[in-house]
């Protein structure tokens, strides 16, 4: 089979399932059990795709996106595993063995471009503040459907058309410090989003609780849910202590105002 033609078919499958997931946000069509049969169908061996879908889903089942970061890209790995199996005529096992390293390669390529896309955040804010909702969606949706998919698309194309060796050569060409630097800035970018929110909600009276939450997570290693329960408990105590103070205040002012309050009570 013509490798370039097969690569284009793989890209079509990738854009199709990603497009459906973009529109539904249910994270269903990018799962291996759906992707692999579709890839098999498009590449001409539906049965192989279905059977490999079962195996790939079992592999990727335990791996889920944590905090929005996808560790190994299940969608592209599945497409590639099916493509290698069908195109080179190897066994499904060998295709699967190739899938995981490519998933990791794909992640390292994609994560290199994360900070570049993160740099667009101020652009989106500016666009939103123009207050033209139709224009906002009109630019954001095509961006999400096509432009944000450019990097995996290119990697997918090279991997199918020229093999993984080509991919590794390409990655080897890049200086290590550039990859390390992009990775480092990517993990620091999140601090900007938090800083904007913190600047907005900071209050000197309750600011100390920032550090309580920080210690619970960083030092005790608690997850978000147990910390939220602690936070809710403290918030409840704060709320009811405040309420008592308020009630006391009303009672006192009522006593000072004396007659007026009594009149009101009689009235009710």
């Amino acid at each position: 089979m013509n490798m370039v033609g097969a690569a284009l078919k793989c890209i079509f499958v990738y854009w199709l399932v990603q497009g459906i997931d973009t529109m539904t946000s249910d994270q269903t069509f990018t799962r291996p059990i759906v992707v692999a049969p579709i890839a098999g169908l498009i590449l001409g061996e539906f049965q192989t795709g279905i059977v490999m879908g079962a195996a790939l889903e079992s592999i990727f089942m335990g791996i889920s996106a944590i905090g929005g970061v996808v560790p190994a890209d299940a969608c592209t790995s599945s497409i590639l595993a099916v493509a290698f199996t069908i195109l080179t005529g190897t066994s499904a096992e060998e295709g699967l063995a190739l899938a995981m390293p490519i998933g990791t390669l794909m992640s390292s390529f994609s994560s290199m471009f994360t900070p570049i896309f993160a740099s667009l955040a101020p652009f989106w804010e500016k666009l939103a503040l123009e207050m033209k909702p139709k224009k906002f969606i009109g630019i954001l949706l095509p961006f999400q459907l096509f432009i944000s998919r450019i990097v995996p698309t290119i990697v997918l194309f090279i991997a199918v058309a020229y093999g993984i060796d080509g991919l590794q050569t390409l990655l080897g060409q890049l200086p290590g410090w550039l990859r390390a630097g992009l990775g480092a800035s990517s993990s620091m970018m999140t601090a900007i989003g938090f800083a904007i929110t913190t600047a907005m909600i900071w209050s000197n009276e309750t600011g100390v609780y920032f550090f309580v939450g920080y210690v619970l997570a960083a030092y005790l290693g608690l997850g978000n849910l147990p910390i939220a329960i602690f936070a809710a408990a403290i918030a409840f105590v704060t709320f009811f202590r405040d309420k008592q103070t308020n009630d006391l205040k009303t009672e006192l002012t009522g006593k000072v105002a004396g007659g007026v309050a009594n009149d009101e009570e009689d009235f009710f």
Partner: peptide, 23 residues
């Protein structure tokens, strides 16, 4: 006012926790 303060306690505490785990 009491609710505002309670919400602020929760908001800041969770931002602190998320800073620890995500930044």
């Amino acid at each position: 006012n009491s609710l505002t303060k309670a919400a602020s306690v929760m908001g800041l505490m969770m931002i602190g926790a998320m800073t620890a785990s995500m930044v």
